[in-house]
Design a protein around this nucleic acid. Structure first.
Lengths: 123, 123
DNA sequence: TTTGACCCTCACATAGGTGTGAGCCTTCAG
DNA sequence: CTGAAGGCTCACACCTATGTGAGGGTCAAA
């Protein structure tokens, strides 16, 4: 599909699709006329990228961990460097921290909303 | 305590402590000589702010939800507007989404690391 | 009284993600 | 053939969190 369609389907500005490409996160083919050609699987990929950006990872990190996330993993198993392992462990731990943090705050907001609701219905 | 100490204790650049203040996230007192004076409870507060920034919330949002998180909540119960409730619900839902997202990716990285480890030990 | 550590404000700079427009080419329907 | 829609590159602009430095005050210990 062309850029306009994937933009619609992923609800992502065209500008950003080109930016993600520039950052090495996606590599659409090119048609003979120079137009970008997006394979179906890139739809998921774009969603994934946006999700990771949304939780605060920079493109530099996303570029590194993306290949390990939902591809046929066994293929590049042997190619992984100790350096990569370290990055992955580090990001995994950071994610765990963020998860704990988000849960705590999510629950706190929830408790607060519950309390206000109860408070309101008691009047 | 003065800014240098809270900076050390929260591992936060002084520059950012002043920035958080400028953004209305903390309000340290002032000493007669103009120095900022930080109460003990601001240590937690700063940690909280940094945590929220780290998971991708902008200061604008943090400013809104912070008062609801770990204070004696009953006090400002009655002051909450429907508008605020909406913001809180929205942010709570966004947090839930991020949590799901992070867990999925955290687990994926973990699975990948496990697999590489198993792979390595089988050789 | 001087020195050094620490504080103040102001202000310009940077990096990353994103917005926006100019100038130009391709494709397709009317 | 023409016009509209959509594609391309390039480039400047913006916002937010953060870095950094200048110029200057406060205070305590030597």
């Amino acid at each position: 599909m062309k850029i306009g369609e994937i933009a619609r389907r992923t609800d992502t500005p065209i500008r950003l699709l080109r930016y993600y490409e520039e950052q090495g996160l996606i590599e659409p083919d090119r048609m003979p006329n120079g137009y970008r050609e997006y394979d179906e699987h890139l739809v998921d990929r774009v969603h994934q990228i946006r999700g990771l950006l949304d939780v605060g990872l920079p493109t530099r990190v996303i570029r590194q961990i993306l290949p390990c996330l939902n591809e046929p993993q066994t293929i590049h198993m042997p190619y992984i460097t100790p350096d990569m392992v370290e990055t992955l462990e580090h990001e995994r731990d950071r994610m765990a921290e963020k998860i704990r943090y988000l849960i705590r705050n999510h629950d706190a907001i929830n408790a607060y909303l519950d309390a206000t609701e109860r408070h309101a219905s008691e009047e």
